[in-house]
Design a protein around this nucleic acid. Structure first.
Lengths: 189, 189
DNA sequence: CCAAACATGTAACATGTTACATGATTGC
DNA sequence: GCAATCATGTAACATGTTACATGTTTGG
Protein backbone atom coordinates (compact mmCIF):
# COMPACT_ATOMS: atom_id res chain seq x y z
CA UNK A 1 0.00 0.00 0.00
CA UNK A 2 2.79 2.41 -0.83
CA UNK A 3 0.90 4.68 -3.17
CA UNK A 4 -0.66 5.98 0.01
CA UNK A 5 2.74 6.88 1.40
CA UNK A 6 3.86 8.42 -1.84
CA UNK A 7 0.86 10.75 -1.66
CA UNK A 8 1.43 11.57 1.99
CA UNK A 9 5.05 12.29 1.18
CA UNK A 10 4.25 14.63 -1.64
CA UNK A 11 1.55 16.42 0.32
CA UNK A 12 3.93 16.87 3.21
CA UNK A 13 5.92 19.20 0.94
CA UNK A 14 2.82 21.37 0.75
CA UNK A 15 -0.87 21.19 -0.22
CA UNK A 16 -1.78 20.11 -3.72
CA UNK A 17 -4.66 18.86 -5.82
CA UNK A 18 -4.92 15.43 -7.39
CA UNK A 19 -4.06 17.04 -10.66
CA UNK A 20 -0.92 18.62 -9.24
CA UNK A 21 0.14 15.38 -7.65
CA UNK A 22 -0.33 13.56 -10.88
CA UNK A 23 2.13 15.84 -12.59
CA UNK A 24 4.64 15.26 -9.84
CA UNK A 25 4.24 11.55 -10.37
CA UNK A 26 4.94 12.00 -14.05
CA UNK A 27 8.03 14.07 -13.40
CA UNK A 28 9.75 13.21 -10.12
CA UNK A 29 8.45 9.81 -9.19
CA UNK A 30 7.92 8.38 -12.66
CA UNK A 31 10.92 6.08 -12.39
CA UNK A 32 10.44 5.08 -8.81
CA UNK A 33 6.74 4.77 -8.19
CA UNK A 34 4.55 5.43 -11.22
CA UNK A 35 0.84 6.00 -10.61
CA UNK A 36 -2.13 6.53 -12.82
CA UNK A 37 -4.83 9.17 -12.55
CA UNK A 38 -7.46 6.68 -11.40
CA UNK A 39 -5.23 5.50 -8.65
CA UNK A 40 -4.37 8.94 -7.38
CA UNK A 41 -7.92 10.22 -7.15
CA UNK A 42 -9.16 7.00 -5.60
CA UNK A 43 -6.43 6.94 -2.99
CA UNK A 44 -6.90 10.61 -2.14
CA UNK A 45 -10.51 9.79 -1.37
CA UNK A 46 -9.48 6.93 0.88
CA UNK A 47 -6.86 9.06 2.63
CA UNK A 48 -9.48 11.72 3.29
CA UNK A 49 -11.88 9.14 4.72
CA UNK A 50 -9.09 7.88 6.94
CA UNK A 51 -8.45 11.42 8.15
CA UNK A 52 -4.88 11.48 6.91
CA UNK A 53 -5.49 14.34 4.51
CA UNK A 54 -8.15 17.01 4.30
CA UNK A 55 -9.43 19.43 1.70
CA UNK A 56 -7.63 22.64 2.55
CA UNK A 57 -9.00 24.80 -0.26
CA UNK A 58 -11.27 24.67 -3.25
CA UNK A 59 -10.50 26.29 -6.57
CA UNK A 60 -12.19 26.73 -9.92
CA UNK A 61 -13.33 23.71 -11.93
CA UNK A 62 -14.02 21.75 -8.78
CA UNK A 63 -10.38 21.78 -7.84
CA UNK A 64 -9.80 20.36 -4.38
CA UNK A 65 -6.54 21.10 -2.70
CA UNK A 66 -5.52 18.56 -0.10
CA UNK A 67 -3.27 19.04 2.90
CA UNK A 68 -1.80 16.32 5.06
CA UNK A 69 -3.08 16.15 8.65
CA UNK A 70 -1.09 15.36 11.75
CA UNK A 71 -2.36 11.78 11.55
CA UNK A 72 -1.08 11.62 8.01
CA UNK A 73 2.31 12.92 8.97
CA UNK A 74 2.52 10.37 11.75
CA UNK A 75 1.70 7.59 9.30
CA UNK A 76 4.36 8.84 6.90
CA UNK A 77 7.03 8.98 9.57
CA UNK A 78 6.06 5.60 10.83
CA UNK A 79 6.41 4.15 7.35
CA UNK A 80 9.77 5.84 6.86
CA UNK A 81 11.32 4.71 10.11
CA UNK A 82 9.65 1.29 10.25
CA UNK A 83 12.51 0.56 7.89
CA UNK A 84 12.68 -2.65 5.93
CA UNK A 85 10.79 -2.08 2.73
CA UNK A 86 8.94 -5.21 1.70
CA UNK A 87 11.91 -6.85 -0.01
CA UNK A 88 13.07 -5.23 -3.21
CA UNK A 89 10.17 -5.55 -5.61
CA UNK A 90 11.95 -8.15 -7.69
CA UNK A 91 10.40 -9.64 -10.82
CA UNK A 92 12.46 -8.80 -13.85
CA UNK A 93 11.17 -9.75 -17.25
CA UNK A 94 14.63 -9.07 -18.60
CA UNK A 95 16.20 -11.73 -16.34
CA UNK A 96 13.36 -14.17 -16.82
CA UNK A 97 14.16 -14.20 -20.50
CA UNK A 98 17.79 -14.87 -19.75
CA UNK A 99 16.83 -18.14 -18.11
CA UNK A 100 15.38 -19.41 -21.35
CA UNK A 101 17.97 -18.10 -23.75
CA UNK A 102 18.91 -21.71 -24.42
CA UNK A 103 15.72 -22.01 -26.46
CA UNK A 104 16.91 -19.74 -29.22
CA UNK A 105 20.00 -19.70 -31.38
CA UNK A 106 23.28 -18.42 -29.93
CA UNK A 107 23.05 -15.51 -32.35
CA UNK A 108 19.64 -14.54 -31.04
CA UNK A 109 20.81 -14.87 -27.46
CA UNK A 110 23.75 -12.68 -28.32
CA UNK A 111 21.48 -10.08 -29.90
CA UNK A 112 19.27 -10.06 -26.87
CA UNK A 113 22.09 -9.30 -24.48
CA UNK A 114 23.54 -6.73 -26.81
CA UNK A 115 20.17 -5.00 -26.89
CA UNK A 116 20.03 -4.96 -23.09
CA UNK A 117 23.44 -3.32 -23.00
CA UNK A 118 22.19 -0.69 -25.41
CA UNK A 119 19.10 -0.05 -23.32
CA UNK A 120 21.32 0.50 -20.30
CA UNK A 121 23.45 2.93 -22.24
CA UNK A 122 20.39 4.76 -23.49
CA UNK A 123 19.04 5.09 -20.01
CA UNK A 124 22.30 6.60 -18.84
CA UNK A 125 22.11 9.18 -21.59
CA UNK A 126 18.50 9.92 -20.73
CA UNK A 127 19.19 10.42 -17.04
CA UNK A 128 22.43 12.38 -17.33
CA UNK A 129 20.82 15.71 -18.25
CA UNK A 130 18.48 15.46 -15.25
CA UNK A 131 21.50 15.68 -12.98
CA UNK A 132 22.15 19.26 -14.01
CA UNK A 133 18.49 20.14 -13.69
CA UNK A 134 18.07 19.01 -10.10
CA UNK A 135 21.28 20.63 -8.99
CA UNK A 136 19.72 24.03 -9.69
CA UNK A 137 16.69 23.36 -7.49
CA UNK A 138 16.84 23.08 -3.77
CA UNK A 139 13.55 21.79 -2.43
CA UNK A 140 13.79 18.75 -0.21
CA UNK A 141 12.31 16.55 -2.91
CA UNK A 142 15.06 17.42 -5.37
CA UNK A 143 17.83 16.97 -2.88
CA UNK A 144 16.77 13.50 -1.95
CA UNK A 145 15.55 12.86 -5.44
CA UNK A 146 19.08 13.33 -6.69
CA UNK A 147 20.14 10.40 -4.54
CA UNK A 148 17.55 8.32 -6.36
CA UNK A 149 18.82 9.68 -9.65
CA UNK A 150 22.33 8.55 -8.82
CA UNK A 151 20.90 5.12 -8.10
CA UNK A 152 19.33 5.12 -11.53
CA UNK A 153 22.63 6.03 -13.16
CA UNK A 154 24.46 3.27 -11.36
CA UNK A 155 21.71 0.81 -12.10
CA UNK A 156 21.82 1.60 -15.80
CA UNK A 157 25.58 1.20 -15.86
CA UNK A 158 25.19 -2.13 -14.11
CA UNK A 159 22.72 -3.27 -16.73
CA UNK A 160 25.05 -2.27 -19.53
CA UNK A 161 28.19 -3.77 -18.03
CA UNK A 162 26.51 -6.97 -16.97
CA UNK A 163 24.97 -7.50 -20.42
CA UNK A 164 28.32 -7.01 -22.12
CA UNK A 165 29.90 -9.46 -19.69
CA UNK A 166 27.11 -12.00 -20.21
CA UNK A 167 27.44 -11.67 -23.95
CA UNK A 168 31.07 -12.72 -23.77
CA UNK A 169 30.20 -15.38 -21.25
CA UNK A 170 27.84 -17.26 -23.55
CA UNK A 171 30.28 -16.97 -26.41
CA UNK A 172 32.78 -19.18 -24.66
CA UNK A 173 30.13 -21.74 -23.70
CA UNK A 174 31.58 -25.33 -23.83
CA UNK A 175 30.34 -25.95 -27.41
CA UNK A 176 26.75 -24.88 -27.98
CA UNK A 177 24.51 -27.87 -27.49
CA UNK A 178 20.91 -27.52 -28.57
CA UNK A 179 21.09 -26.48 -32.20
CA UNK A 180 17.98 -28.44 -33.21
CA UNK A 181 16.18 -25.52 -34.84
CA UNK A 182 18.56 -22.82 -36.04
CA UNK A 183 15.82 -20.25 -36.49
CA UNK A 184 12.06 -20.53 -36.29
CA UNK A 185 10.84 -17.02 -35.70
CA UNK A 186 9.08 -16.21 -38.89
CA UNK A 187 5.37 -15.61 -39.25
CA UNK A 188 2.93 -15.60 -36.37
CA UNK A 189 -0.71 -15.08 -35.46
CA UNK B 1 1.47 -11.84 -18.97
CA UNK B 2 4.92 -13.25 -18.34
CA UNK B 3 3.98 -15.99 -15.94
CA UNK B 4 2.75 -17.72 -19.05
CA UNK B 5 6.19 -17.49 -20.61
CA UNK B 6 7.92 -18.60 -17.47
CA UNK B 7 5.81 -21.75 -17.52
CA UNK B 8 6.42 -22.36 -21.20
CA UNK B 9 10.12 -21.88 -20.60
CA UNK B 10 10.26 -24.35 -17.75
CA UNK B 11 8.18 -26.91 -19.62
CA UNK B 12 10.43 -26.58 -22.64
CA UNK B 13 13.17 -28.15 -20.50
CA UNK B 14 10.96 -31.22 -20.17
CA UNK B 15 7.45 -32.21 -19.04
CA UNK B 16 6.42 -31.47 -15.47
CA UNK B 17 3.40 -31.19 -13.21
CA UNK B 18 2.13 -28.02 -11.58
CA UNK B 19 3.63 -29.28 -8.37
CA UNK B 20 7.03 -29.77 -9.98
CA UNK B 21 6.92 -26.35 -11.58
CA UNK B 22 6.06 -24.77 -8.30
CA UNK B 23 9.21 -26.15 -6.75
CA UNK B 24 11.25 -24.79 -9.60
CA UNK B 25 9.70 -21.40 -9.01
CA UNK B 26 10.71 -21.58 -5.38
CA UNK B 27 14.26 -22.55 -6.20
CA UNK B 28 15.46 -21.20 -9.55
CA UNK B 29 13.08 -18.41 -10.37
CA UNK B 30 12.29 -17.19 -6.87
CA UNK B 31 14.40 -14.06 -7.26
CA UNK B 32 13.42 -13.29 -10.80
CA UNK B 33 9.79 -14.18 -11.21
CA UNK B 34 8.07 -15.49 -8.10
CA UNK B 35 4.74 -17.21 -8.52
CA UNK B 36 2.19 -18.68 -6.18
CA UNK B 37 0.49 -22.04 -6.35
CA UNK B 38 -2.87 -20.54 -7.32
CA UNK B 39 -1.28 -18.71 -10.16
CA UNK B 40 0.57 -21.70 -11.53
CA UNK B 41 -2.39 -24.05 -11.59
CA UNK B 42 -4.68 -21.41 -13.05
CA UNK B 43 -2.25 -20.47 -15.78
CA UNK B 44 -1.55 -24.11 -16.67
CA UNK B 45 -5.27 -24.49 -17.23
CA UNK B 46 -5.33 -21.46 -19.50
CA UNK B 47 -2.26 -22.64 -21.40
CA UNK B 48 -3.91 -26.00 -21.96
CA UNK B 49 -7.09 -24.33 -23.24
CA UNK B 50 -4.96 -22.25 -25.56
CA UNK B 51 -3.28 -25.40 -26.87
CA UNK B 52 0.18 -24.32 -25.80
CA UNK B 53 0.64 -27.21 -23.42
CA UNK B 54 -1.01 -30.59 -23.12
CA UNK B 55 -1.31 -33.29 -20.51
CA UNK B 56 1.38 -35.76 -21.49
CA UNK B 57 0.92 -38.23 -18.64
CA UNK B 58 -1.12 -38.83 -15.56
CA UNK B 59 0.30 -40.10 -12.30
CA UNK B 60 -0.98 -41.05 -8.86
CA UNK B 61 -2.92 -38.52 -6.74
CA UNK B 62 -4.40 -36.92 -9.82
CA UNK B 63 -0.98 -35.78 -10.95
CA UNK B 64 -1.07 -34.29 -14.41
CA UNK B 65 2.17 -33.93 -16.26
CA UNK B 66 2.19 -31.22 -18.87
CA UNK B 67 4.32 -30.95 -21.99
CA UNK B 68 4.73 -27.92 -24.18
CA UNK B 69 3.27 -28.17 -27.70
CA UNK B 70 4.73 -26.80 -30.89
CA UNK B 71 2.39 -23.82 -30.57
CA UNK B 72 3.74 -23.24 -27.08
CA UNK B 73 7.32 -23.40 -28.25
CA UNK B 74 6.54 -20.92 -31.00
CA UNK B 75 5.01 -18.55 -28.46
CA UNK B 76 8.06 -18.87 -26.23
CA UNK B 77 10.50 -18.18 -29.04
CA UNK B 78 8.43 -15.27 -30.19
CA UNK B 79 8.48 -13.78 -26.72
CA UNK B 80 12.23 -14.30 -26.42
CA UNK B 81 13.16 -12.76 -29.73
CA UNK B 82 10.49 -10.07 -29.76
CA UNK B 83 13.12 -8.40 -27.62
CA UNK B 84 12.32 -5.33 -25.57
CA UNK B 85 10.88 -6.47 -22.28
CA UNK B 86 8.16 -4.10 -21.12
CA UNK B 87 10.49 -1.55 -19.58
CA UNK B 88 12.31 -2.65 -16.45
CA UNK B 89 9.62 -3.32 -13.90
CA UNK B 90 10.58 -0.30 -11.84
CA UNK B 91 8.75 0.67 -8.65
CA UNK B 92 11.13 0.57 -5.74
CA UNK B 93 9.77 1.10 -2.27
CA UNK B 94 13.33 1.58 -1.11
CA UNK B 95 13.84 4.56 -3.43
CA UNK B 96 10.40 5.97 -2.78
CA UNK B 97 11.33 6.31 0.85
CA UNK B 98 14.51 8.09 -0.09
CA UNK B 99 12.46 10.86 -1.65
CA UNK B 100 10.85 11.64 1.66
CA UNK B 101 13.84 11.25 3.92
CA UNK B 102 13.59 14.97 4.55
CA UNK B 103 10.59 14.24 6.77
CA UNK B 104 12.59 12.50 9.44
CA UNK B 105 15.63 13.48 11.44
CA UNK B 106 19.08 13.32 9.83
CA UNK B 107 19.91 10.50 12.24
CA UNK B 108 16.94 8.48 11.10
CA UNK B 109 17.75 9.13 7.46
CA UNK B 110 21.29 8.01 8.15
CA UNK B 111 20.06 4.83 9.84
CA UNK B 112 17.81 4.08 6.92
CA UNK B 113 20.62 4.24 4.39
CA UNK B 114 22.93 2.28 6.61
CA UNK B 115 20.30 -0.43 6.85
CA UNK B 116 19.99 -0.54 3.08
CA UNK B 117 23.73 -1.00 2.78
CA UNK B 118 23.51 -3.88 5.23
CA UNK B 119 20.70 -5.49 3.31
CA UNK B 120 22.81 -5.32 0.16
CA UNK B 121 25.71 -6.93 1.96
CA UNK B 122 23.47 -9.65 3.36
CA UNK B 123 22.11 -10.41 -0.06
CA UNK B 124 25.63 -10.80 -1.40
CA UNK B 125 26.41 -13.28 1.32
CA UNK B 126 23.20 -15.16 0.66
CA UNK B 127 23.84 -15.43 -3.08
CA UNK B 128 27.53 -16.26 -2.98
CA UNK B 129 27.14 -19.94 -2.02
CA UNK B 130 24.69 -20.46 -4.88
CA UNK B 131 27.49 -19.71 -7.29
CA UNK B 132 29.33 -22.88 -6.36
CA UNK B 133 26.14 -24.91 -6.51
CA UNK B 134 25.17 -23.99 -10.04
CA UNK B 135 28.70 -24.48 -11.34
CA UNK B 136 28.35 -28.20 -10.60
CA UNK B 137 25.17 -28.57 -12.64
CA UNK B 138 25.01 -28.30 -16.37
CA UNK B 139 21.42 -28.12 -17.51
CA UNK B 140 20.54 -25.19 -19.72
CA UNK B 141 18.59 -23.54 -16.92
CA UNK B 142 21.58 -23.49 -14.59
CA UNK B 143 23.94 -22.20 -17.22
CA UNK B 144 21.78 -19.24 -18.06
CA UNK B 145 20.58 -19.03 -14.48
CA UNK B 146 24.14 -18.32 -13.44
CA UNK B 147 24.08 -15.21 -15.60
CA UNK B 148 21.06 -14.06 -13.63
CA UNK B 149 22.87 -14.91 -10.43
CA UNK B 150 25.78 -12.73 -11.42
CA UNK B 151 23.30 -9.95 -12.04
CA UNK B 152 21.98 -10.43 -8.53
CA UNK B 153 25.46 -10.21 -7.07
CA UNK B 154 26.23 -7.04 -8.96
CA UNK B 155 22.87 -5.57 -8.04
CA UNK B 156 23.41 -6.26 -4.37
CA UNK B 157 26.85 -4.67 -4.50
CA UNK B 158 25.30 -1.65 -6.19
CA UNK B 159 22.75 -1.34 -3.44
CA UNK B 160 25.42 -1.51 -0.77
CA UNK B 161 27.82 0.90 -2.42
CA UNK B 162 25.15 3.38 -3.35
CA UNK B 163 23.70 3.43 0.15
CA UNK B 164 27.11 4.05 1.68
CA UNK B 165 27.69 6.85 -0.80
CA UNK B 166 24.26 8.36 -0.12
CA UNK B 167 24.88 8.19 3.60
CA UNK B 168 27.96 10.35 3.23
CA UNK B 169 26.14 12.57 0.79
CA UNK B 170 23.41 13.62 3.22
CA UNK B 171 25.98 14.16 5.94
CA UNK B 172 27.51 17.05 4.04
CA UNK B 173 24.12 18.58 3.24
CA UNK B 174 24.32 22.43 3.32
CA UNK B 175 23.04 22.67 6.93
CA UNK B 176 20.04 20.52 7.66
CA UNK B 177 16.89 22.58 7.30
CA UNK B 178 13.67 21.07 8.56
CA UNK B 179 14.34 20.34 12.17
CA UNK B 180 10.79 21.21 13.30
CA UNK B 181 10.15 17.92 15.04
CA UNK B 182 13.35 16.21 16.14
CA UNK B 183 11.65 12.88 16.76
CA UNK B 184 7.99 11.91 16.74
CA UNK B 185 7.94 8.19 16.24
CA UNK B 186 6.59 6.86 19.46
CA UNK B 187 3.25 5.19 19.98
CA UNK B 188 0.80 4.40 17.23
CA UNK B 189 -2.57 2.82 16.50
C1' DC C 1 -1.53 -46.31 11.43
C1' DC C 2 -0.18 -41.89 10.85
C1' DA C 3 2.55 -37.97 9.51
C1' DA C 4 4.77 -35.90 5.76
C1' DA C 5 4.81 -35.00 1.25
C1' DC C 6 2.27 -35.08 -2.94
C1' DA C 7 -1.21 -32.93 -5.64
C1' DT C 8 -4.88 -29.88 -7.25
C1' DG C 9 -8.10 -26.57 -7.09
C1' DT C 10 -11.43 -22.26 -5.60
C1' DA C 11 -12.68 -17.76 -3.40
C1' DA C 12 -11.92 -13.28 -1.51
C1' DC C 13 -9.29 -9.51 -1.65
C1' DA C 14 -5.68 -5.96 -2.99
C1' DT C 15 -3.50 -3.54 -6.52
C1' DG C 16 -2.81 -1.64 -10.89
C1' DT C 17 -4.03 -0.48 -15.95
C1' DT C 18 -6.98 1.23 -19.64
C1' DA C 19 -10.70 3.28 -21.24
C1' DC C 20 -14.74 5.90 -20.76
C1' DA C 21 -17.37 9.96 -19.26
C1' DT C 22 -17.94 14.69 -18.02
C1' DG C 23 -17.45 19.35 -17.43
C1' DA C 24 -15.17 24.25 -16.39
C1' DT C 25 -11.78 27.88 -17.38
C1' DT C 26 -8.25 30.30 -19.70
C1' DG C 27 -5.87 32.40 -23.42
C1' DC C 28 -5.71 33.47 -28.04
C1' DG D 1 -15.71 31.00 -30.19
C1' DC D 2 -12.75 27.32 -29.67
C1' DA D 3 -8.80 24.62 -28.53
C1' DA D 4 -5.82 23.48 -24.84
C1' DT D 5 -5.49 22.67 -20.30
C1' DC D 6 -7.44 22.02 -15.95
C1' DA D 7 -9.94 18.92 -13.14
C1' DT D 8 -12.37 14.89 -11.27
C1' DG D 9 -14.39 10.75 -11.32
C1' DT D 10 -16.20 5.58 -12.64
C1' DA D 11 -16.07 0.92 -14.74
C1' DA D 12 -14.03 -3.11 -16.72
C1' DC D 13 -10.35 -5.85 -16.75
C1' DA D 14 -5.74 -8.04 -15.60
C1' DT D 15 -2.70 -9.60 -12.25
C1' DG D 16 -1.16 -11.16 -7.97
C1' DT D 17 -1.68 -12.63 -2.85
C1' DT D 18 -3.70 -15.16 0.96
C1' DA D 19 -6.51 -18.30 2.76
C1' DC D 20 -9.51 -22.05 2.42
C1' DA D 21 -10.82 -26.74 0.96
C1' DT D 22 -9.86 -31.46 -0.26
C1' DG D 23 -8.03 -35.77 -1.14
C1' DT D 24 -4.06 -39.50 -2.06
C1' DT D 25 0.18 -41.97 -1.52
C1' DT D 26 4.45 -43.28 0.58
C1' DG D 27 7.58 -44.46 4.16
C1' DG D 28 8.58 -45.45 8.67
Amino acid sequence: MSLRHALLGLLSQGPASGYDLLKTFDVSLANVWPATQSQVYAELGRLASAGMVEVSAQGPRGRKEYAVTEAGRAELRHWLTQTDPGPLSRRSEMLLRVFFLGEVSPEQAHDYLRRQAELGEERIRRLAPLREMVSTMDDSLSIYGSLALEWGMRFSALQRDWALWAEKEIERLPEHRRCEQPNTETERT
